[in-house]
Simulated scan of single mutants.
Amino acid sequence: MYGLSTLEGQKDPFEDWKNKFWTSYKTGIVYWSTMQAVNFSLVPPVARTVFVGVISLGWTVFLCHFRRQTN
């Protein structure tokens, strides 16, 4: 988030990071723990790479959406 804030020319590049870091961090821990539990318990080995690719895309979409939200 700091890098994008710097590139966008914001006055305080750390402001967005300070406001959103803990929320995205906690969400990531829950999301990735759950998805990896599903991955290793339910997804057949041959499809695990595709599954992780799809959930990674979902995580990226979440981060992009979360970044654009205003407080």
Results as ranks from 00 to 15, higher is better:
residue 38 V to H: 03
residue 66 F to N: 05
residue 4 L to C: 11
residue 66 F to C: 02
residue 30 V to W: 09
residue 63 L to K: 09
residue 1 M to C: 09
residue 20 K to C: 00
residue 3 G to I: 11
residue 43 V to P: 01
residue 15 E to G: 12
residue 31 Y to M: 01
residue 55 I to R: 08
residue 22 W to L: 11
residue 23 T to R: 15
residue 22 W to C: 06
residue 42 L to A: 08
residue 70 T to K: 15
residue 45 P to G: 08
residue 44 P to N: 08
residue 1 M to P: 11
residue 38 V to Y: 04
residue 34 T to I: 07
residue 1 M to S: 13
residue 59 W to H: 06
residue 4 L to K: 15
residue 51 F to M: 00
residue 56 S to M: 07
residue 55 I to V: 12
residue 37 A to K: 05
residue 21 F to P: 03
residue 14 F to K: 15
residue 40 F to P: 12
residue 65 H to G: 12
residue 10 Q to F: 03
residue 59 W to I: 04
residue 25 Y to V: 08
residue 31 Y to W: 01
residue 39 N to H: 07
residue 30 V to Y: 09
residue 27 T to E: 02
residue 65 H to Y: 14
residue 10 Q to Y: 09
residue 26 K to T: 11
residue 10 Q to S: 12
residue 49 T to H: 13
residue 30 V to P: 07
residue 30 V to F: 07
residue 1 M to I: 07
residue 61 V to T: 10
residue 38 V to M: 02
residue 21 F to E: 02
residue 2 Y to Q: 04
residue 67 R to L: 02
residue 9 G to V: 00
residue 53 G to R: 09
residue 29 I to R: 13
residue 21 F to C: 03
residue 59 W to L: 01
residue 22 W to S: 09
residue 54 V to R: 06
residue 45 P to S: 06
residue 38 V to E: 00
residue 20 K to H: 07
residue 14 F to G: 12
residue 41 S to E: 03
residue 18 K to P: 08
residue 3 G to A: 09
residue 45 P to Q: 10
residue 48 R to Q: 04
residue 39 N to K: 12
residue 41 S to R: 14
residue 33 S to C: 04
residue 41 S to A: 05
residue 57 L to G: 12
residue 60 T to R: 08
residue 16 D to W: 15
residue 14 F to C: 13
